[in-house]
Simulated scan of single mutants.
Amino acid sequence: MAKDDSDIYAALLQAIERGEFQPGSRLIETELAERFKVSRTPVREVLNRMESQGIASRDGKGGLIVAELSQDQLGELYDIREVLEGFAARLAARHAAPAEIELLKEMIASGKLVEGEARELAIANKQFHQQLHNCTHNQYLQQMLSSVQRSLALLSGTTLAEPARVVVSEKEHRMLVEAIENRDEDKAEQVARNHVKNAYKTRLKIELGW
């Protein structure tokens, strides 16, 4: 049960990621307060925070809803994600400690990035990228990447629901870790940027129903 603002925020964001609140769904204080067994005050604080982050927006009646991304916004989101993930990979190749690289290799070897249901794959993938972001040793870049991740929560489903994407993604992860281990900054950035570009292509197919 959520007990404070941070708990409520995390729980609501996870619910949005799971699709329990679809883009355009109303976010009603009283209903959320009942859901999380808290007063309306912390819920209001969380909703204000989400609105400031672009996760929630106002509808025509002034109420809060889960934000909806237009096709243009989707492209903009992946554009900035490509740049940030590429730079993160470059910094990881420069700064990652041997133990951090070993952890990335262990995450790949575990099979969790290729085996399981789509949601399980998405969770494992998020953990892998979080570890990669930690390897940058740059807190400001990590904050920007966290902001992008929050916006990605607004997208329905996961690109890893597509079997072909899982296969390609796993290959890209291996190439990325190899480049980081070899301290090849240019290669690491190139692989990371291509990784995001390919994810975007799959995302477009999902959003457009191809």
Rank of each mutant, 00 (worst) to 15 (best):
I101K: 00
M107L: 15
H133T: 14
Q130H: 15
E115L: 14
G75E: 07
A92S: 11
E102H: 14
G62Y: 06
A92N: 01
G62R: 08
A99D: 14
K61D: 11
Q71P: 05
A122P: 04
D72H: 12
P98T: 10
E51K: 14
A122H: 08
L64W: 02
G63R: 13
R119M: 10
A88W: 03
H129Y: 09
L132G: 03
I80T: 07
F128Y: 11
Q71W: 12
A109Y: 09
A124G: 02
E76F: 11
A92P: 00
Q73G: 01
L121R: 04
M107G: 05
I65E: 06
G54L: 10
L104E: 00
R94L: 13
L91C: 04
E68T: 14
L113H: 04
G116T: 06
G116F: 03
H95C: 08
E82M: 13
E120Q: 13
A88S: 13
N125R: 06
R94W: 11
Q130P: 07
K126P: 02
Q71I: 15
A56D: 01
S110M: 05
L103N: 13
Q73T: 02
E82S: 13
P98W: 08
A67W: 01
D72F: 11
F87W: 10
H133V: 15
L121D: 00
E68Y: 10
G111A: 08
Q127V: 13
R119H: 12
Q71C: 09
I55T: 08
M107S: 05
A89P: 03
G62Q: 09
R58N: 09
G116S: 08
H133W: 15
N134P: 03
I123V: 14
L104G: 00
L77I: 12
A109M: 10
Y78K: 02
A118N: 08
